Amino acid sequence: MYSPIPVLNELKDLYDSTRDYLADGFELYGYDDKTCFPGELTDPEFLSRLIPIAQANGTGSTYAIWRSSDEPDLTKLPIVVFGDEGGEYVIARDFRDFLRLLGYDVEITVDHDSAYYFRDEDHEHSGSHELFVEWLRRQGLAPAEDPDALIAAAQEIHGERFRAWITPFYEKLGWL
């Protein structure tokens, strides 16, 4: 079993069944592989509250489940992104919203001021996009039409609390 999350296991099976990207820049990691975080972030409390699940873009940003509470159903917890050059944000209220964001099929851009998905008019979908959209529909989901709205909703609910949680870890490292 890949993970304790049934829908993530199904996603992994789909991911393994194709050679093309399901979503632009999205590559699953080994479940809960902490090596994706910078080597300085070794605090056990920090690491215990984050479950890395995937590479978010071609430059090494990371998607992770944030254990914002002791909720046993990990699909109900928020998804965060850590930018490869800085910046970290709550981008999805839960796993369902995260899957919808992936369905938009664009790499996320993460910087110190924001995280967003941008798709220009001549964007070509990933090779396995249609296969992923079919899978989403079987999950009762549709790709996000407005990813910024999903990110804004996640930030509204979890953004300040995430910032308050992560700040002491960064302060210890002198990053703030």
Rank of each mutant, 00 (worst) to 15 (best):
F95V: 08
F95H: 04
F95P: 06
R96I: 01
R96L: 00
D97Y: 00
L99G: 10
R100Q: 15
R100D: 11
R100K: 15
L101F: 11
L101D: 15
L101V: 11
L101P: 15
L101Y: 05
L101Q: 13
L102P: 12
D105M: 04
V106C: 13
V106T: 13
V106H: 02
I108A: 10
I108S: 06
I108N: 03
V110F: 00
V110D: 00
H112M: 12
H112D: 11
D113L: 10
D113H: 11
S114M: 14
S114L: 11
A115G: 09
A115T: 07
A115D: 06
Y116K: 12
Y116E: 13
Y116D: 13
Y116N: 12
Y117D: 03
Y117K: 08
F118P: 04
F118V: 15
R119P: 00
R119A: 09
D120I: 10
E121I: 13
D122Q: 10
H123F: 07
E124K: 08
H125K: 12
G127H: 02
G127W: 00
G127S: 04
G127I: 07
S128E: 06
H129Y: 14
E130V: 09
E130H: 07
E130Y: 02
L131Q: 15
L131V: 15
L131W: 02
L131F: 01
F132E: 08
F132Y: 15
V133K: 01
V133R: 01
V133Q: 00
E134G: 03
W135S: 08
W135Q: 04
W135G: 04
L136I: 07
L136W: 03
L136K: 11
R137K: 12
R138E: 14
R138S: 13
R138G: 10
R138V: 05
Q139W: 01
Q139S: 11
G140I: 02
G140A: 04
G140V: 01
L141D: 04
P143K: 03
P143T: 09
P143I: 06
D146P: 00
D146I: 08
D146T: 09
A149H: 07
L150Y: 04
I151D: 01
I151R: 09
A152Q: 13
A154Q: 05
A154I: 13
A154L: 09
A154T: 15
Q155K: 15
Q155W: 07
Q155G: 13
E156W: 04
E156F: 06
E156N: 12
I157N: 01
I157A: 08
I157G: 00
H158R: 11
H158G: 08
G159S: 04
G159L: 11
G159V: 11
E160L: 06
R163G: 02
A164D: 14
A164L: 07
W165S: 01
I166A: 13
I166R: 10
P168V: 14
F169I: 07
F169R: 12
Y170D: 12
E171G: 02
E171N: 10
E171R: 14
K172T: 12
K172G: 05
K172E: 14
L173S: 08
L173V: 09
G174P: 08
G174H: 09
G174T: 12
